[in-house]
Amino acid sequence: MNSTAFDALLWTALLVGFAALPIFGGDYLVGIGLAAAMWLALTQSWSVLSSLTGYVSLGHTVFYGLGSYVVVVTWQQTPLAIALLGAGAASAAFALLVGLPVMRVRGPYFVILTFGLAELVKYSVLALEAEMGVSSRLLFGAPDIRVIYGLMVALAVAATALRILVDVLPFGHGLRSLRENEEAAETVGVPVARYKLFAFVLSAIVPGMVGGVMAMRSTFFEPIQAFDPTISVNIILMAVIGGGESARGPLLGVLFLVILSEWLWAKAPQAYMIILGLLLIVFVLKFPRGLAGWLADWQRARR
């Protein structure tokens, strides 16, 4: 069967699996499914920017946190749907605001810049809340976990669809070209600065909404937690391990790490982190195209 048919089958099966989970599984499994859907939504969005343009963002938690904040601050003053859309819009607006200057910075500087930016926003929100005398916020009347689960799966679908769409559109090809050589890409007609900004903004929308949904899940908002840098790190880990060349990569990375963390996190959190560090090193050195790339090579060799 050819590649496109295989993909269609893969994603349909996955969707069916996600849909069936709350019907046949208990709360525990739904929790895992929720985590998987969340990381899938985050990593697919991240990959639209970082896998395609080569600008590796270590600060994607900033969009997550901003989205959380919007939902929490407007809680019970606006309908949920509006709040969630607002979360996405706020993240996109922030990306639009900082995108142009931020994306003039290249290579490793971009990586640490995004990290610094996320920390800056985190501490700013923290200081702001402190000035207002707020140390944390509680949400009352949050929806049931199955509703939250449904929302998150929808976001995962949206993010995956976005990644697949960008891959087939000329936009994606333009992004890949500028990843290879920005100057040459511009010379053959790719509007580099605009495309970079666009990718940056697109990669921010779903994470914002994910943050909003998760705020409802935890019913608790505290800036240090909401803008947690380990979220950014986890996204990168999943993308590096899974691979960034197609939408399959994040899926593989998410599944791998969710299973690994379920197995190890409760028993030996330090061991888990040590293994993660090792995995990152090994994959960066030996498997730059991740599990998806390795799988694709294996498939090609079999033909």
Partner: peptide, 18 residues
């Protein structure tokens, strides 16, 4: 250069947690 950053990052995670 971009990859070396991720590499050192992995080393950092490894060292800190060890």
């Amino acid at each position: 250069e971009a990859n070396s950053l991720l590499l050192f990052f992995g080393i950092s995670i490894l060292v800190q947690n060890t």
